[in-house]
């Protein structure tokens, strides 16, 4: 695909996204907001998986940490936006920094298990420390900050534009990071930690930085989640949420940031659309997931990149990988 066609597609997508609140229904705009904050979790997941080959099941836990921090601070009237959001990000950074020290000593299945445990600990705390988190009833009444409720052409679409702008900025930053010297080092670690160590790199520190960056992205998703939904509940960070991020990542393609966003968009859309017809929508998503794993192990993005016009992108992301 040449540069001109690429920019034409980018422009059409950008114009469509900007016009969504005016040309589409309110339901669609709401759906877009939901897709965008969940996609931030998918980006956090795909960043770790694609760059250093670590599959983290703790992504929703960081969304929860951030969301609960805001919910607790605001419902108790301790502080409000933007300070509550800043405090939430600080908490996410602190917990991910501490947990990253332990998690980065492991890899493969042990890393998955450790992150699963972290997710479950945070879920259990949210559920059982009722005096602070209000347990299974959750914390309600968190209102959207005024700064996110501005009008555009008379329509109250501020929240949509704030999350869209943040989303684009984060995806751009993460993609830039993957193409930077830091991203190159992470790829080196993914392929051989010992070779990177021999090149003089403190591999554990680089992995730790990547883990904290991923957690930060999930934490930002938490800020939008809590302000949009207005409720913080343990079900937002349970095992199903971890599974949803994992399924979305594999659906779209774990080696691609864009693929993870695509996967999350499809999973979220299917969840909402199928839910209108059947309570057993998860079975259908499960079957589709199975088909993708069997017939397109590199996810939908792998299939798209296999198109002859996308060959250079396919080579860039998949060629040379140990498992390609």
């Amino acid at each position: 695909m040449n540069q001109i066609s690429k920019w034409i597609i980018y422009t059409i997508v950008a114009l469509f996204l900007l016009a969504v609140p005016f040309i589409m229904s309110e339901f669609f705009t709401t759906m877009m907001v939901r897709v965008l904050y969940f996609s931030l979790m998918a980006v956090a997941f795909a960043f770790l998986a694609s760059q250093i080959g670590l599959v983290s099941l703790a992504i929703p836990a960081f969304l929860g940490l951030s969301g609960y921090t805001i919910a607790i601070l605001e419902t108790r009237e301790i502080m409000f936006f933007p300070y509550s959001a800043m405090a939430a990000i600080v908490v996410v950074l602190f917990v991910s920094a501490v947990f990253g020290i332990f998690a980065n000593r492991s890899k493969g299945i042990y890393f998955i298990m450790l992150t699963l445990i972290l997710g479950q600990i945070i879920w259990a705390v949210a559920r059982q420390w009722a005096s602070v988190t209000n347990g299974v009833n959750g914390l309600i009444g968190i209102s959207t900050p005024d700064a996110m409720q501005f009008n555009v052409f008379g329509a109250n679409v501020g929240f949509y534009y704030v999350i869209l702008f943040t989303f684009v900025l984060i995806v751009w930053a993460v993609l830039a990071l993957t193409r930077s010297s830091f991203g190159m080092k992470l790829k080196g670690i993914r392929e051989s930690e010992s070779r990177m160590i021999m090149l003089g790199y403190r591999v554990s520190r680089l992995k730790w930085v990547a883990f904290v960056i991923s957690s930060l992205v999930a934490g930002i998703a938490g800020v939008f989640f809590v302000y949009f939904v207005g409720v913080m509940h343990p079900s937002a960070i349970d095992l199903d949420s971890s599974a949803m991020v994992l399924i979305a990542g594999i659906f779209g393609g774990v080696y691609s940031i864009i693929g993870a966003v695509l996967g999350m968009s499809i999973v979220q859309t299917l969840e909402v659309v199928l839910n209108a017809y059947t309570q057993r929508y998860l079975i259908i998503i499960g079957i589709m997931f199975l088909l993708v794993v069997i017939y397109a192990p590199k996810g939908l993005m792998g299939l798209i990149y296999k198109n002859k016009y996308m060959k250079s992108l396919y080579d860039k992301w998949y060629k040379g990988r140990k498992d390609s």
């Binding site: 190159m184 080092k185 790829k187 993914r190 392929e191 070779r195 060629k319 990988r321």
Partner: peptide
């Protein structure tokens, strides 16, 4: 012991 997904130039840069 080279890196499969890094190009020649990236090997030297890294």
């Amino acid at each position: 012991q080279l890196f499969p997904s890094l190009s020649v130039d990236e090997h030297l840069q890294i």
